[in-house]
Design a protein around this nucleic acid. Sequence first.
DNA 1: TAAGATTGAGTCTTCAATCTTA
DNA 2: TAAGATTGAAGACTCAATCTTA
Lengths: 165, 165
Amino acid sequence: MTERSDHVDFMRAQWARELPDVDTGGMAILGRARRVTLQVRPAIEAVFAAHQMDAGEFDVLATLLRSGAPYRLRPTELYKSLMISSGGLSDRLARLAAARLVARPAADDDARSLPVQLTEKGRRRIEAAFRADMALEAELLRPLSEKEQRALAFLLRKLALSLEA
Amino acid sequence: MTERSDHVDFMRAQWARELPDVDTGGMAILGRARRVTLQVRPAIEAVFAAHQMDAGEFDVLATLLRSGAPYRLRPTELYKSLMISSGGLSDRLARLAAARLVARPAADDDARSLPVQLTEKGRRRIEAAFRADMALEAELLRPLSEKEQRALAFLLRKLALSLEA
DNA sequence: TAAGATTGAGTCTTCAATCTTA
DNA sequence: TAAGATTGAAGACTCAATCTTA
C-alpha cells in the first residue's frame, strides 16, 4: 500500500492528462535517478565545503586517492574518468595546485604531459572528505532496508552496464 | 551469474584496497544514479538540440506544457519546480522570450510578477521535443525487462519519497 | 601527423544586491 | 517589512584553436 506520491508521480499524472498517448515510463526511472541525484547534491556539497573543497575538486582528489600510491595520474586519465572536458580539468588542476593539494612533477617518460600527484596535505584532506561523504550517503539511504538497498544497487548496476556497452 | 563489472564496481574495488574500513555502499546506489544520469545526458541533449533548444529551456517549456492550458505559470513556481536559482531562471526566460517560445503577459492580480506563458510556437515545439525525449528514454531502458523496470522504478520512488520528506 | 594538454572566447549558472509592489 | 523578480559580478564549464612533443 503506497499512498503518497513523489514529484515524478505528480509530473507523470500531469503528462497523462495533457498527452495521454505518450509513454512516460522512462521518466519513472531516468527522471527519478536525476531527481534523486539533484536532491542529495546540496547535502553532499555541504560536506565538501566543510573540508574546504567543491564537488569538482573532490572528484579529482578522490580519483587520485583511490588510484593508490603514489597517487599520481596523467591529466588525460583524469578527465576521461571524470567525464569532463580537458579544458575543464586544466582549470581544476590550476586551482588544486594553487592550494597545494596536488603537485605537477615532471614526467619521466612522456614530456607532453605533466602528471598530477596528490600532496601529503591533499591526501589527508581528501581522505577525511571521502569518509565524511560515505558516512552521509549511507545515512541518506537508511530509510531503505538492507534488502531494498541491495536490490536497487543491483538494478542500477544492470542499467549502468547496458549504458556503458 | 554476473561476470562483468561496471565503473562503480571498479571504483569500489579501488577504495576497498585503499581504505578497507570505509563502507562504500552509498556509492553503489547514489554513485550509480549519478553515473547513469551523466551517461544518458549526451543522447538526451542531442534530442533537445534537434528541436532547437537546450536542456534548461526544455525543462522550462515542459513544465509549462504539463501544467495544462493556458500553459501559464509564475516565475517563482517555475524556478522552485526546476530546482534552480531565481536569477538562473530570469536568463532562461529572456532567451525563450527572445525566441518567441514564451510570452510575458501582464499579471491580472499580482503586479510584482510577469507570468510566463507558452506561445503556440512554443507549445508545438516542446510537444515534439517531449515526445522524442520519451521515445529515446524508453529505448535506453530496453535492456531491462518490464519486470526489472517496474522494480527499479518502485525502489527509486521509495528513495525519492524518503528524500523529499 | 597524431596525441596530450593548455588557453581564450562564449555560455550558463549562482550569489548578492537592488528595485518594485503587497 | 516582506515577497517577487531582475541585474551584475564572479565562477566553472565546453568548444575550438593552439602549442608542444611523440
